[in-house]
Amino acid sequence: MARATVLRRLTWQAASIADIRVETDTARTIVLDLPGWPGHVAGQHVDIRLTADNGYSAQRSYSVASAPADGRLEVTVQRVPDGEVSGYLVDIAQPGDVVEVRGPVGGYFTWEPEDPSPVLLVAGGSGIVPLMSMIRARSDVHSRVPFRLIYSTRGPADAIYADELRRRVRDDRGVDVAYAYTRTVPEGWPRPPGRLDAALLTASGWPADLGPAAFVCGPTGFVETVANLLVAQGNEPARIKTERFGPTGG
């Protein structure tokens, strides 16, 4: 008689760093090889754990940046001041290094291609990462769901994936991107530096009566502000999904 399969609970698995790409002065994309990785749903995250020789370990959650794929995933990590895990991943890690990964996890902040609603993505800083996975997944499944991204960064040099986003606006039909620069703007930019506000959400988002699915990711204060603005504009709170990464970032 065949034995019943004993299901194993989700736990940590070793992942080797296959490649590292520079995204900005403070952000790197880490490509991880994970044998047996089942793929993920766009928007999900993984936990990454580092363990020192003396047994001390530290773990953080990072959103998956790549589109769903078997056996491999990418995370984009922004260095945060005194960050134990981000400091290693951004400044020290090399291809061939091994880290531990637990995931994919999170069934709330996810975009399902079957949902026909127009999508509004609002990113603060490295909050772009899970939203980029959604944009990439949309392209991979040839979805025609219209996406609008509003991306708040300090200035153009801080925007992660800027070249790819420019290309996708040109080539992926139905993806629009608007930037909200908070500190420095390019020459001739029509909007002075400043925080994302109701006017920009109105101009670059969707009217609430279209029932958009909104995904807001960024630092806690940013997410609270944007979610409140979207509710004030008449969006259904249940249609606004949020992911916060604390006061300074992940």
Binding site: L7, R9, L10, T11, H45, V46, D47, S61, R102, G103, V105, G106, G107, Y108, F109, P219, T220, G221, E224, T242, E243, R244, F245, G246, P247
Partner: peptide, 20 residues
């Protein structure tokens, strides 16, 4: 603003429960 949100519990809780 010194908080994160329940999304970050996903990994810890998936070690205990079979679903998210």
């Amino acid at each position: 603003m010194d908080y994160m949100d329940g999304n970050m519990l996903a990994g810890e809780l998936r070690e205990i429960f079979s679903m998210d």
